[in-house]
């Protein structure tokens, strides 16, 4: 627990380096919801192999690192209604807002993008309100 922030920082630097590579080499914004969403709704099929290659990297590297950790508990909810509601909100919300934590936050804020900063403030506030509402008031999580 005491070391968590160091690993957070190291992980953050890796995430940002990934975003830097994707921008400078491929000329693309590393936004997870945009990369996935473009494949789902067909708007990004022109770059489907590039998108799939990116997503393959996201899936494969944790598989390679996992054995060094032994077991990782993600503490995910076992309530399917909660997971389905949350997934729908995240899926629709990120597409309507045109970005998520990676696109608006990691890429948008260092670009000094007003939209990125506004979106990040709003989803963090909504997330905070959500946790208070669902955990402390409704008690569903």
């Amino acid at each position: 627990m005491e070391m968590d922030w160091i690993w957070g920082l190291i992980g953050g630097l890796l995430i940002g380096t990934g975003g830097a590579v994707y921008l400078l080499a491929n000329g693309r914004i590393m936004g997870a919801s945009g990369i996935i969403g473009g494949l789902v709704d067909g708007t990004g099929l022109a770059q489907k192999w590039e998108r799939l290659a990116f997503l393959a990297g996201v899936v494969v590297l944790p598989i390679l690192i996992y054995p060094y950790y032994g077991h990782v508990d993600t503490h995910v909810s076992d309530n399917w209604a909660v997971l389905i509601a949350a997934g729908l909100l995240v899926g629709v919300g990120t597409r309507v807002a045109n970005g998520c934590t990676s696109g608006h936050g990691v890429c948008g804020i260092p670009r000094l993008s007003l939209r990125g900063m506004a979106a990040t403030m709003v989803y963090i506030l909504a997330g905070g309100v959500g946790v208070v509402l669902f955990r402390h008031i409704l008690g569903v999580i």
């Binding site: 997870a32 990120t94 990676s102 909504a126 309100v129 946790v131 569903v140």
Partner: peptide, 25 residues
């Protein structure tokens, strides 16, 4: 869209603790 979508996204993020990137990872 930016504000309303981000409100929806934030609520879902808080509810499950997952956003698109970590969900794939």
């Amino acid at each position: 869209g930016l504000i309303g979508g981000s409100v929806m996204f934030g609520m879902g993020w808080g509810l499950a603790g997952l956003c698109p990137g970590p969900s794939v990872a």
